[in-house]
Nucleic acid binder design. Sequence first.
DNA 1: AAGGGCCTCAACCGCTATAGA
DNA 2: CTCTATAGCGGTTGAGGCCCT
Length: 293
Amino acid sequence: MVRTPCCKEEGIKKGAWTPEEDQKLIAYIQRHGEGGWRTLPEKAGLKRCGKSCRLRWANYLRPDIKRGEFTTEEDDTIIKLHALKGNKWAAIATYLAGRTDNEIKNYWNTNLKKRLKQKGIDPTTHKPINSTDQTGIGPKNLKRSSSGSARVLNRVASKYAVDLNRDLVTGIIIGNSTIITQNSEVENSTTILLNKMSTSSGFSDNCSFSDGFPEFFSNQEISDMSMSDDHVGLMEELKGMLSYDNAVPGEIKGSPEANIADEMEFLDSWNVEDDLDLEKFVSSLDSSIGVFV
DNA sequence: AAGGGCCTCAACCGCTATAGA
DNA sequence: CTCTATAGCGGTTGAGGCCCT
């Protein structure tokens, strides 16, 4: 099957845009808004194909585009998100206000990839290049065999947030508070629980679960988290981000079996000063709230 | 100064997803 | 359900600038 080219017309200009063409495009979009890219060039007096106009606008002319150097925070965010999402540039771009997928992709390919390689980390797998470990768990000498906090997050996500937006948990992991805010509808009970948990420093890296609960994050992703994040740091991040005092009880969306009153009662009865035995903690969750996966 | 190699990044290409007729 | 148009995505290309010899 022969595909019709997007810009088959004769006389369609290609290559770098001139300032005059930019002005025409900006003026047209300011008057008529975005969209209708197929017919836009003719209406705006441009000898370009619609696709080229859309890209020029989306990647360069949009007023909310942030220009200039990437900050170290942005670098960290991109690296962490890449470990979680892979080459999903558009998805990654949604976490970096003002940055386009194209810009992030170029920055990754020209800077971050090299930087990771220099540190001895495979930019594709985010694992040490010399590692012979194929199990998805990092080498023992990194002291990060399997992050207890990542497992706990998984547990929480799978049990308490049936309708939890995956991006919310990703946001918690990468420390992006805007994502938390954007998901305020589903954050409350999960936030409270995570916050309560984050105030304890007793999570063990040796914890293990054997009851086969559905995992919100895959083993691979948990492994990636444990490779790229110090779980103690993650808990500190949670502590800083989530305020128990400000959290408001809410209903767990899409989970009719969940009883927020029971959950709150359990949380209130749980003393943060208690020594935390993770297995006991999880089984107490089961008995207090019931398994509703 | 010249020119060759390398790097960056805007732009393009090919493809898939989605909406609407 | 099928077809078509459009939007959006990710990989790739190539022009232009920079650096090194």
